[in-house]
Design a protein around this nucleic acid. Structure first.
Lengths: 205, 205
DNA sequence: ACGTTTGTTGACAGATGCTCAACAAGGCAG
DNA sequence: CTGCCTTGTTGAGCATCTGTCAACAAACGT
């Protein structure tokens, strides 16, 4: 059976010869779409191949192993989603923190599904994915410290900010706008971060 | 080949007829041991059966599906590990909070491996496991609020405490005792919780 | 001693990750 | 235009693992 143009699932795919880069990109996008519906261990590569209109063999040609494919997909999504927030201008520290908080809340509001998919991936999947998320979080810490007008401040502050970021993530992800007004949430997060950092610095004497 | 007494791996297993309960308990314990070495999708039920000295079929007799087995294992571990901390006595709120924090730090110190296994399970695995961990966390919130002398206080406080708990978990798990003294960590966590709760209550007017 | 319950197993079916050797489409030299 | 050569692409097959089925055998009651 000669491969013809076929519309499978969401994506309409002319099954013709494609450049390697285009194929990779297409497969990664399909993978990302499917990963938002179900976790990786419930996703058969058969289905990815079918949606792309290619054979499973070709998928293995681009990604030697299922784990490799998984890492590539999560990595691409992470690049796009956790793109470092541009620390805005040179306003006063409280305002800069507020901007960061607002940025994150907006991010979650717009991509709640994608974001939860990503953090879910952080837990269960490949070790490389765990490391990826861990590195991303580590990279975030100095950015927030900087926005607070606090260049490096010792190990406790690092530790504490890291924990606070994870806590904020959890808070925003389980936030129900019907129960807590958006503004109230943001106000609290800003005040919380400043208080937390104040405590950490006081403890460091 | 008649099943005889055989010592496989860690557990010495007389492969004889066992009571259903004993078998279940044995299999769950073996599963937990193995889960601490590698994530669920890298664990073949063959190996569990082999360690128990039984056939894979028998395992399926007790747990209809691999996911069921997984849930049973994680659930048992969770019961044992996340056993609700006994809120000690009727000391003043700050002291009670301190006790809770110390309890958690001690828990992580003694079972770091097990605990990370558990939270890793919270992310990647079965939906039932995710729900289990979520419920456990939810159940923790009122306990901490209570210890702080704050009976219910509205949605924001709940949300904030939930996020704070997750943040604390992250903080303690990535804590390096060589960089931050134990006492300093605990002092900060106690002060942080109190400050956080104060902010949330102030916001609720 | 016989039968019923139930712990236990080997053999098989279906799905899925992964390999291998070969085909075919496009570009480039002669 | 012809023929080669790179490379995107595939079908068939292998190994592993989950889950099923029918039957065996050890305890226990009658």
């Amino acid at each position: 059976m000669v491969a013809t143009s076929e519309s499978v699932g969401t994506t309409t795919v002319p099954t013709a010869r494609m450049s390697a880069d285009a194929r990779r990109a297409q497969l990664i996008e399909i993978g990302w779409d499917l990963l938002q519906e179900r976790p990786i261990h419930e996703l058969a590569l058969d289905e990815v191949a079918a949606r792309a209109g290619i054979s499973r063999t070709l998928l293995f040609h681009y990604f030697p192993t299922k784990a490799d494919f998984y890492v590539a997909v999560v990595s691409a999504a992470s690049d796009q989603l956790l793109r470092p927030p541009r620390v805005p201008d040179d306003a006063a520290p409280p305002e800069r923190i507020r901007r960061l908080v607002e940025g994150f809340v907006r991010l979650v509001e717009r991509n709640r599904g994608s974001y939860t998919t990503l953090v879910r991936a952080a837990g269960g999947g490949d070790q490389r994915v765990v490391d990826l998320i861990a590195r991303t979080r580590d990279a975030l810490v100095p950015r927030w410290l900087d926005a607070a007008g606090n260049p490096d401040v010792g190990p406790l502050a690092h530790l504490v900010v890291r924990g606070w970021l994870v806590g904020m993530e959890e808070t925003v992800l389980s936030w129900d706008p019907l129960l807590v007004p958006r503004e109230e949430l943001i106000d609290h997060l800003v005040a919380s971060f400043i208080a937390e950092l104040g405590l950490a610095n006081a403890a460091a004497r």
